[in-house]
């Protein structure tokens, strides 16, 4: 059996989730606290991937990142980034595609914290950054976990965006969901079944772990 597409999927989901976490915390913090008039616009943009067909996103990425136009050329020449039909392109597209799944839980968690918690840390002499790291984020641990898992699982399951911008290059952009499609196309149902079973089990275990942890079942078990 060829494990390469599955490993590629896990690598893509891992890298995407990590970068998303770093990106989403400041964004969610801003959304949770701002009184700016821009907020609804930014919120809409963050949520767009929820409703837009993945192919639409993929199509525009393909156009934007293409070396045939200005933005793609600029990326290529200045940053050395070739985002079409490459792994880094998949990562960028996945980050945008899974953004709401990371931002929404964190934003909801941060909005749910009583302001006095933050203020208590301030009057105790703690900076905004220390307060974020030591008070706010630990308080919303369940939300962080939910965000991480949803973003990871959503990236594992993406298909349309990957197909549009990544294509089907073995070892580079051929992730498991594409491989399944590929196997079905060539009527190799056993191969498709192999990838599908593994994906099914992996996602089931991840989600089960989240519900166990957030529901406090594990803690009760260990006691």
């Amino acid at each position: 059996m060829n494990w390469e597409p599955l490993l590629l999927t896990l690598k893509l989901a891992g890298v995407t989730t990590l970068l998303l976490l770093v990106l989403s915390i400041p964004l969610a913090l801003w959304l949770a606290t701002t009184k700016s008039r821009l907020k609804p616009v930014i919120e809409t943009l963050v949520s767009m991937p929820l409703v837009l067909p993945p192919t639409v996103l993929g199509f525009y990425f393909l156009v934007a990142f293409s070396p045939n136009n200005a933005f793609g050329t600029w990326l290529n020449e200045w940053l050395g980034l070739k985002l079409v039909f490459s792994f880094s392109g998949l990562v960028v597209a996945s980050i945008i595609y899974s953004l709401p799944f990371m931002v929404h839980p964190i934003q909801a968690g941060l909005s749910g914290i009583a302001p006095s918690l933050k203020e208590a840390a301030y009057v105790m002499g703690k900076s905004k950054f220390t307060t974020l790291i030591k008070v706010l984020l630990p308080t919303i641990r369940p939300s962080l976990l939910t965000g991480i898992v949803l973003a990871f699982a959503h990236t594992v399951g993406e298909f349309g965006v990957v197909l549009m911008i990544g294509g089907n290059i073995p070892g580079k952009t051929k992730v498991a969901s594409i491989a399944i499609y590929d196997e079905v196309e060539s009527l190799n149902y056993a191969g498709a079944n192999f990838y599908s079973t593994v994906l099914f089990l992996v996602t089931f275990c991840i989600l089960l772990a989240v519900y166990l942890i957030n529901g406090g079942y594990l803690k009760r078990f260990w006691k």
Binding site: S116, E119, V123, P138
Partner: peptide, 10 residues
């Protein structure tokens, strides 16, 4: 030193 109405314990 500020004692908040809702205590604001971490």
């Amino acid at each position: 030193g500020y004692v908040f109405q809702d205590y604001a314990l971490f």
